[in-house]
Design a protein around this nucleic acid. Structure first.
Lengths: 359, 359
DNA sequence: GACGCGCATGGTAGCGCTACCATCCTTGGC
DNA sequence: GCCAAGGATGGTAGCGCTACCATGCGCGTC
């Protein structure tokens, strides 16, 4: 298969006197379009980028020439000449995680009507990997950067500050962002969930958490504060692991927790995967939900509502975070002053059957 | 915040006689490194891309200069000069779908140790959108392309054939790929799942499917062939909708199916989300699984194994498909002849409690 | 000892586009 | 009717890198 390096293909229209340049592979260029339309190259460039600044007559000629040649602008040349690639770099810990998949979907939707392409990097929850990827991204002078969380390494923060493009930190709302941020308070979310369970009458509420990234830590801190305020905190109520979260891990962690504290009457799960696993383990072990065990998840994925019994969770506005981040980035790239640099989209505790109260 | 267009920063090392070029923002260039290291620019370029071709002495000097200046190669300039961007374009229908999230993770992992960046486009299951995105991708002369499925529009296929780079079609294994393909037979998967349920004694097996893309259609065709072979096919056993799949939709579709055919004794679900919804609806309606209703999903996500009862599903090798696609792309980009252009990674019916047999 | 081969290194000339500035033409004010 | 102002158009000069083609050197061959 002649897949690599096709021989220079024949010019579609009669591009008279075109010297066969050895590089580039014979694709039509801006100059070809200009020649066919009988205008200067720069006018073609403008017609494509800022149509309003070119007269209607010329624009029509140029459009026709573009179509006739099947011209596609070379984004690499454009990026080099303007010292700016039409690329928005996005750094997320992982895409397997439904939460980030939703955020990224919001970002994509927010940028779908622009010329910007999205490039995603997976940090795998590692600050060093984040730093490495950021350098790679900066190598192409991205139009904007979206990074997850507020806990970058000092070096990464310095790079972001010197990036020379808009930067949005997502998932968390907090003071002193590099440039802008959009998210919510994980601490408050953890506290609110715990307070909800306490208000429903649960007392020995365990915390189950996997892959304790900074945001998970803050949710745990919120749980702890609520429990301490009620005089109910005990270290052995907390089960955490650095292992990535999954439904099956939820089952295991509940078993562990019950082995350690058999009298647990409720579980606040760091996320919904774990909560679903906890529910299945309760089914399996014939523990009644919500009478013997109350369950609360975090994020409120679709399945929480339809699980049987339905599972209480903290609804977070993941898609909106991505969409809003895209909007902030767009505004900043247009040069508009962004007055609201710190956006807190909040959360809601959605009470369902799984926390109806102990017997 | 001076976020946009920082003033040209001072040269870190003493770059004597450096005229302040108005564009580019004063970032160190290859020439700066060459000057500091006392070598030619091209040697620096080689030292970075093909270290073996530069003597150890010079390499050390160059490395030192790179570090001293904090030099980061400009990927846009590199792409323009070499007529190839270090970007692999990936077109998938959606990332919300766990299935594609896994595939994409495999692609990322497969390319993590290379210089290539991944750029993802979401076609939203639309052939026209796929075509549009492909043109955008081609505008930067990607190093390789990975697209989903074998059912591109004729125009898209033409573009792919003329892309001048390796192309891998993923998710399906079939004859006559544009260049290469890796996946499995959805038809066979649907048939095998149905045959499994038939072998366990289920007779009035319904099909539940959402967002009937070409691959879902082929799974349905496989189901249909198995049912017809057993003399059990009936059109009203099939419930499909163009709506995107979700757990809650699974609950609804089961209700619909039962309303139409109350004697249904099994359900083959087009994917695992639906299967989980069906399970929850059975819990809710007090229908015993697997005695009254047998359930089989598709893809075998993590939660199938830990659901209670555990749910039979067709395991597909999503991560491996992505990883293998990345490997094929890497080999082709290195110019190695790829002998196996059509790779079928198969699937397995993982029998669990949900299809233990009717009463 | 002259020649040729291969390897390390360098110079030159773009890649295709856009920033910057110059030029031209229209339009309006006096 | 002349000139200023402003909008449309074009020419020139790169952006920072790599492909291509020298060049120079050491070494083996006859």
């Amino acid at each position: 298969m002649a897949r690599r390096q096709e021989p220079a293909q024949e010019d579609t229209a009669g591009g008279a006197g075109r010297r066969p340049s050895r590089r580039g592979g014979g694709r039509p260029t801006l100059a070809d379009v200009a020649r066919l339309a009988g205008v200067g190259a720069i006018t073609v460039s403008r017609a494509l980028r800022e149509p309003d600044r070119v007269s209607v007559t010329l624009r029509a000629q140029i459009d026709a020439a573009v179509r006739a040649l099947g011209y596609v602008p070379d984004r690499n040349a454009r990026a080099l000449a303007s010292a700016r690639a039409d690329v928005v770099g996005v750094l997320v810990p992982s895409l397997t995680n439904n939460v980030f998949a939703d955020v990224v979907r919001g970002i994509y939707d927010g940028l779908v009507d622009t010329r910007f392409q999205i490039q995603i990097g997976h940090t795998h929850y590692s600050g060093l990997e984040e730093e490495r990827l950021l350098k790679v991204f900066l190598g192409q002078r991205p139009a904007a950067l979206i990074v997850s969380g507020l806990d970058q390494t000092p070096q990464t923060r310095t790079l972001l500050e010197a990036a020379g493009c808009p930067v949005v930190q997502i998932m968390e709302a907090g003071p002193d962002p590099v440039d802008m941020c959009v998210g919510f308070s994980h601490f408050d979310g953890g506290r609110a969930a715990t307070e909800h369970m306490l208000s429903r009458g649960y007392r020995r509420i365990g915390f189950i958490g996997a892959r304790m990234d900074p945001r998970s830590q803050r949710r745990l801190a919120g749980y702890r504060q609520a429990m301490e305020a009620a005089g109910l905190f005990e270290p052995r109520l907390v089960s955490t692991t650095p292992i990535p979260s999954s439904v099956s891990l939820g089952r295991e962690l509940l078993r562990d927790a019950l082995a350690r504290v058999p009298t647990i009457d409720g579980v606040f799960c760091n996320n919904d995967d774990l909560a679903l696993g906890v529910l299945f383990e309760c089914h399996y072990a014939s523990l009644g939900v919500p009478r013997q065990i109350g369950i609360c998840g975090f994020n409120d994925l679709d399945m929480m509502q339809v699980a049987y019994p339905s599972i209480t969770s903290v609804r977070t506005h993941r898609y909106d975070i991505g969409y809003r981040a895209a909007a902030m980035v767009k505004a900043a790239m247009r040069g508009e002053p962004v007055e609201e640099r710190i956006v807190d989209l909040g959360f809601e505790v959605v009470a369902r059957d799984s926390t109806a109260g102990p017997m």
